[in-house]
């Protein structure tokens, strides 16, 4: 009993270690949901040691595969997002840390990000052509953030989120229209 194990050579930074403690409860709950929901899915969890070139900088990825993958990513990843939200809530992860753990499936997050960046540029051009504010389709908070950031460099348009909850919309506004809109809180 007495022999104390030698200190491991590398020590995790404190926040990283804390994140690791969510692994087991996430895995347990996901296994239950997959079994009881009759989903044909499996998943692996991996740490991103050096956060990939990614503004969201997730540190833990839960990666799904299996016959029901299509179900996860359809409707812009509605089921993937729902699972992520429920599971992270259930394991009591603080909401500020929700971006640190991400659920993914066949590169969906990366592909969706690229799609959103492209959509942002096209919509910005559309707003300029029409000279009127251009509201985008409904997006999640995370998706809106990608669009805001994608258009930050453009001086000919600005972006705003308007409305509340599920109805919140990102609107692209030609810079020429000036800045007199109601709710300029960026997200």
């Amino acid at each position: 009993m007495g022999s104390e194990a030698a200190q491991p050579a590398s020590q995790d930074r404190p926040p990283a270690r804390e994140l690791e403690s969510y692994r087991a409860p996430i895995e347990a709950l996901l296994n239950t949901i997959i079994a009881r929901g009759g989903f044909q899915l499996s998943f692996t969890m991996r740490r991103l040691t050096s956060p990939e070139a990614d503004l969201e900088a997730p540190e833990l990825v839960v990666d799904f595969s299996g016959p029901d993958s299509d179900l996860l990513v359809e409707a812009n990843g509605e089921l993937l997002n729902a699972l992520e939200y429920i599971v992270l809530k259930a394991v009591r992860l603080e909401e500020e840390l929700f971006t640190k753990i991400t659920f993914d499936c066949h590169q969906f997050r990366r592909l969706r990000r690229e799609e959103l960046k492209l959509m942002a540029q096209v919509a910005a051009d559309r707003a300029l052509e029409s000279g009127a504010p251009f509201p985008l389709e409904r997006l999640t908070a995370r998706e809106r953030r990608i669009v805001h950031l994608a258009l930050r460099e453009r001086s000919d348009v600005r972006t705003e989120s308007q409305g509340y909850g599920a109805e919140r919309r990102l609107v692209i506004i030609p810079a020429a229209l000036g800045r007199n809109s109601a709710g300029p809180d960026r997200r």
Binding site: G38, L71, L83, Y85, I86, A166
Partner: peptide
């Protein structure tokens, strides 16, 4: 239920998908 019903909506999404399989 969650903020602006987000948790309930997410549960319904999962339920809907599981139902679709059946």
């Amino acid at each position: 239920i969650g903020k602006q019903g987000r948790t309930a909506r997410s549960i319904r999404t999962i339920l809907g998908a599981a139902g679709m399989k059946l």
